[in-house]
């Protein structure tokens, strides 16, 4: 069905986005650009077409045919379920000491992931840690959308001087390594869950803005947009009714990649000790706690559990994101 849609190839909106196309793999330290590595040069963002409702059903069918994407979906859904249900599932509280005499106890049937250096149940802490990750991932991306979409939309739709001013400021933010900027913001706001996701959001919107701008830039010359303009729709109406809905798929894909990046960023911050306030459990903090050389040597399970959790979540989101991109992308039918 998608094949029947008009396919438009838009040129490079501007030379800069090569870094975007390069994706999070290279800029992984930074909050990665929205769209991950496509199989060929040019990104999903380059190819857009007006879509209809049945697209989603179609996409779903394609998604479920992709084995990796299904694995990713299962991981992501379990991750969300675990995060939401953590207090119900966890046998112990996140800061509860099971037995202070049993510090650093290896995994067993009683404590499937062992007890940590304070005799706390690693399994329970891992479950609670998922909550922090989910909250940071989702809320920071919410903030990214909240700032990124309007900025990108204004720049893309109006172009000209507005575009110039907005994109120049974006360039400035972009020129600072993103993680560095997050660190500066965290330093400014102080540690803690809320401050962390705000900091991540305040840095991450830049990529989103570029993505949306590129979309709008390409779409605003489409015939149906011109038609809407001629029929007297205001700029806001056009943006909300026509441009935004048609930019939705790349935004969704970007979101799927943005969430794990935010999760990773939080973990990294907590790892260096400027993240979540302990004793609240966070995966990064668990990594930080367990990564003293002596612990790694004698009690590697303490480190293995949170590292595996972060890794698995990253994989899940990446698989799902890749799958989504392929499923939503017109080229997927090639």
């Amino acid at each position: 069905m998608a094949q029947s849609q008009p396919r438009t190839r838009v040129g490079q909106p501007q030379p800069q986005p090569l870094a975007d196309r390069l994706d999070g793999a290279t800029a992984r330290e930074a909050v990665p650009p929205a769209v991950a590595a496509p199989p060929t040069l040019g990104s999903a963002a380059d190819l857009v077409a007006p879509r209809q409702r049945s697209l989603w059903g179609d996409a779903w069918r394609r998604l479920t045919r992709n084995k990796l994407a299904v694995i990713g979906l299962v991981v992501v859904v379990s991750f969300i379920a675990i995060a939401v249900l953590a207090p119900v599932l966890a046998p112990y509280g996140q800061s509860e000491v099971v037995d202070f005499r049993l510090t650093r106890t290896e995994p067993s049937w009683t404590w499937p992931l062992g007890l940590d250096q304070n005799g706390r149940d690693i399994f329970s802490r891992l479950l609670y840690g998922a909550r922090v990750s989910l909250v940071v991932g989702v809320l920071s991306q919410g903030l990214v959308l909240l700032i990124g979409i309007p900025v990108g939309a204004l720049a893309g739709y109006y172009g000209g001087r507005v575009d110039n001013i907005l994109m120049r400021s974006v360039d400035v933010v972009y020129a600072i390594p993103q993680l560095l900027l997050v660190l500066i913001f965290v330093n400014l706001f102080g540690p803690g869950l809320v401050n962390i996701f705000i900091a991540i959001g305040l840095v991450g919107w830049v990529t989103e803005a570029r993505l949306v701008r590129g979309q709008f830039l390409a779409l605003r010359e489409q015939e149906y947009v011109n038609a809407a303009r001629v029929s007297g729709s205001t700029g806001w109406q056009i943006m909300l009714r026509h441009l935004l809905p048609n930019s939705l798929t790349p935004i969704i894909v970007a979101l799927t990649f943005g969430i794990p990046t935010a999760i990773f960023t939080e973990a990294a911050l907590s790892f260096v000790g400027v993240g979540i306030l302990p004793p609240q459990a966070s995966w990064g903090q668990m990594v930080g706690d367990a990564s003293q050389p002596g612990y790694i040597q004698t009690d590697p399970y303490m480190l293995a559990a949170p590292v595996a959790a972060i890794g698995l979540t990253m994989l899940g989101f990446t698989f799902l994101g890749d799958g989504l991109r392929d499923a939503l992308d017109v080229r997927g039918n090639d």
């Binding site: 793999a25 992984r28 330290e29 991950a36 590595a37 990796l68 794990p260 990773f264 973990a267 990294a268 790892f271 990594v287 990564s291 790694i296 040597q297 590697p300 480190l303 293995a304 590292v307 972060i310 890794g311 990253m314 994989l315 989101f317 990446t318 698989f319 890749d322």
Partner: peptide, 22 residues
């Protein structure tokens, strides 16, 4: 490739260390 690409480098670092330790 997809495994490497999904894992942040500090997770990768610790995985390598854990692998060596084991």
């Amino acid at each position: 490739a997809i495994l490497f690409y999904s894992l942040p480098n500090f997770v990768m670092g610790f995985l390598l260390i854990l692998l060596f330790v084991v």
